[in-house]
Every structure is written in structure tokens, then in C-alpha cells.
Design a protein around this nucleic acid. Structure first.
Lengths: 214, 214
DNA sequence: CATAATAAACTGACCGGTCGGTCTATTATC
DNA sequence: GATAATAGACCGACCGGTCAGTTTATTATG
């Protein structure tokens, strides 16, 4: 059936990686297909053999970047531990994941801009945010129900947490001179939780986020 | 000097408004100069008479949108009132201003993406964030010094506040179905402040942000 | 009648996408 | 085990539409 060994997965990855590099450097519009061809070390014909258009390539990158994130977030669901532990574990994982995504920052903000005029992109972004809330909100609600947390609106609190994380990333991306990303993520989250948590001496992060190493 | 009545200011505004409309609908790249020509009701020659390139037009819009914001933010500086009142007043003004900027949301996120590869855009965005911090941080510090607020790091708290506002706007832009913008802005900010403020029964917003009208 | 202002036809660089054709590993057949 | 047939993989010159920016002619006004 296969007269030649199947290299298609290798090629697709090769192309996606080249595209990510070029798009990160030059933006979706500034990047020419010929640039991606050059970066990949393949030919234009081969690129188009695997991806039928520039748009398809962009959407594939969207999937490539976010698919793993969904899986990782979902994996953190449904652990029957305390709200404190659940939030701690989730936030540690999320912050670690954010660090890894920093290299994609220019592409991610490009996606945010694209989302306003491309349905597919918009849907993925929405799913990302929904997934986040669907994990954090139940943990907070659980904490409220069992007396660990104050009786706040779990939904609003979950969104506030998401906003804090996304907003911190945004501020850091444009004004890295005024904040250390990891420190600020921890201290911002700590401020939010100090208002929710009932036990006064609780620290969501070991060091209280005051002088975490970046 | 002017054999004809000087209409240049009128024309520039006419063109900027048309450009904002078209860019909002179609994005910076999707918008053609001919589209802006059509929207403005002028001709291409006239457009290029006032703006020498597409880029100059984009930068002018950047200035147009943010110039007013700087002025408004600066106007709120140096009012010797309590931290509580200062923050209240600033946040009310900021939230009101945000509402007015919502129509530009697609353009603003386009600017965020552009900032990664355009120095001018990056500098304006940075100045915007710096200005925000330079107003909020002293108010918080003042509150700490006079005992109104807990002894937190004023700089980190100011950034956390900025992140909360920007992050909420971002979440709302992409998932308006899960939050009411104004409610969430108020409740998110309230959560942050509940952890900073010393007096237990203080409400930064009259209604505590629980059921504000949108 | 000088000139700011306007109109609209025009130009050409650029770039996404195509297409005719080639290469080579594998398999079927004798 | 030689060879013909097959098909997936690959190449790069080229095409054609698009669109930012230019040119040139005209108009209106003080």
C-alpha cells in the first residue's frame, strides 16, 4: 500500500515548526510562504502538498498550540482534594505551562486579533477560556461549600482569577520592565485569594509570592 | 496663505473616522486604502494628500485613540484625598472610559499584536501601562502610609489591579457569554481590594459589585 | 491667476497559489 | 532476481490578481 515509507507526519511537523518560527518573527501577514519554505528546508510544492493554503497552516498552528493545553487542563479536573490543594496544584501547573508558552506570545496575540474576524480562531479561544473556568469554578465552589472559602460568587471569582493571570501576562508582554512575570503572577493571585480564604495565615504559594525566584 | 478655507482638520478627522470604521470591520491588513477612500466619501488623492502612507494612518489612529486616554488619566493625578476616595474615583472614571473604548476593541487587540514588531506602537502601549501604574501606585502607597490599607507592596498591587482590569476586558472580548463586563470589572476589583483594605465593611463600589447594572 | 484641494486613472512590486514534470521506494509478475 | 508498474513525495518556474502608492488633470477660491 505504501510504496515509500510514510514521512508525512515528520514533514507536517517540520513545516509547522518552520511556520511557527517565521510567524513569530514576522507576523501572519509579514510572513511569506516562501519564507516558510526556506525555513523548512523543503520546497514550495512540498509545503502545498501538506497544507493547502496559508490559512490552513495558521489554523493548524492554532490547534498545535492549544490542543496540548486543553489536554493538560482537563487532566487536572476531578481530583477530590481540598480547594486549597486543588487551586494550588492547578495554579502551579498553569504558571509552569504559561512559561512554556511565552515563546509563542507574539503568535498568541496575533490570534487574539484574528479572533475578531475568524470564526474558527474565535471558537478555539472561547473554548480555552471556558475550559479554564470549568476547572477553577467547581474547585472554588467546593471550597465555599466545605467552609474553606468565604461565600463569594464562585463564577465571578473564577473569572477574576483568569483575568488576573491573562492580564498579568499581557502587562508583562508589553511592559516587562515594570514586573517580573512569575513574581507578579503569584503575588496577584495571592492578593485575590487573601480576600477569599477564611484561614488568615494561609498561603497559596509556599513563599507567599513576595520573593519567588523568577 | 490659504486661497481656500482651511478644511484640513475637518478632512483629517473625516479620514481618521473612516479608517477606524474600516479597520474595525476588516482589520489592518484586510482593509484596503480604497475601502477607506470609499468610506470617507473622498478620493484617493485627497487621502494621500493628508496621510502619506497606510502606516502613517495607522499610527495616527493609535495617537487618536490613546492621546485622550493619557490626558484623562493624568487629570486624575495629584488629588489629595483618601486612598479609598482616590481609587474609587479613578476606577469609576477608568471603567466609564473602558466602556467608550469598547467599540475600538478589535483595533486595540490589533495594536497589541502589532506592538511586537513596531517600535512606535510598542512605545505607546508601554506609556499607557506606565501611566496607569504611575497613578494607581502612589494612591495605594498613600493608603498604606496613612493606615487605610494593609502593608502590601504598592507596586505589585497596582499591577495586579491593572492586570485585573485588562484581563477582564480580554475575557469579555472573547467570551462575552460567561460574564457581564461591568459587573465583572467591579466584582474582580472588589475581590482584590477586600484583601488590601483594613476596614472590613468597606465597599469600593456603592453596591459591592454584586449586582451592578450593566 | 496662484495654489490648495480634489478626482480618478494608472503602475508595478509583490506574493499566494498552481502545475507540469521528476524521483524513488515498494510491490507484482514472470 | 530482473523489471515493469504504481503512487506518494517532491520540486521550482511561473501566473495572475491585488493593492499601496503615484501621476496628472481639473476645480474652486481668495
Amino acid at each position: 500500500m505504501a510504496p515509500k515509507p510514510d514521512v508525512s507526519e515528520v514533514r507536517k511537523n517540520q513545516i509547522i515548526q518552520a511556520a511557527i518560527n517565521v510567524f513569530t518573527r514576522q507576523g501572519f501577514h509579514g510572513a511569506r510562504m516562501d519564507d516558510i519554505v526556506e525555513e523548512s528546508g523543503l520546497s514550495k510544492g512540498t509545503l502545498y502538498w501538506y497544507y493547502k493554503s496559508k490559512e490552513e497552516l495558521i489554523i493548524s498552528i492554532l490547534d498545535h498550540i492549544f490542543a496540548g493545553e486543553f489536554a493538560k487542563m482537563e487532566a487536572l479536573k476531578n481530583e477530590n482534594i481540598s480547594a486549597r490543594q486543588g487551586l494550588h496544584k492547578f495554579l502551579e501547573a498553569y504558571i509552569a505551562e504559561l512559561q512554556k508558552m511565552l515563546i509563542f506570545a507574539p503568535i498568541i496575540y496575533e490570534f487574539y486579533a484574528l479572533a475578531f474576524r475568524n470564526k474558527t480562531v474565535r471558537v478555539v479561544m472561547q473554548r480555552y477560556l471556558h475550559t479554564f473556568i470549568s476547572i477553577v469554578e467547581p474547585i472554588i465552589q467546593y471550597g465555599i461549600d466545605n467552609g474553606e472559602l468565604r461565600d463569594v460568587d464562585a463564577h465571578q471569582a473564577a473569572i477574576a482569577l483568569g483575568a488576573q493571570l491573562e492580564g498579568t501576562l499581557l502587562l508583562w508582554a508589553y511592559a516587562p520592565d515594570i514586573l517580573s512575570l512569575e513574581d507578579q503572577l503569584r503575588s496577584g493571585v495571592k492578593l485575590l485569594f487573601d480576600s477569599i480564604i477564611i484561614s488568615e495565615d494561609f498561603e497559596i504559594f509556599e513563599n507567599g509570592g513576595e520573593n519567588a525566584s523568577l
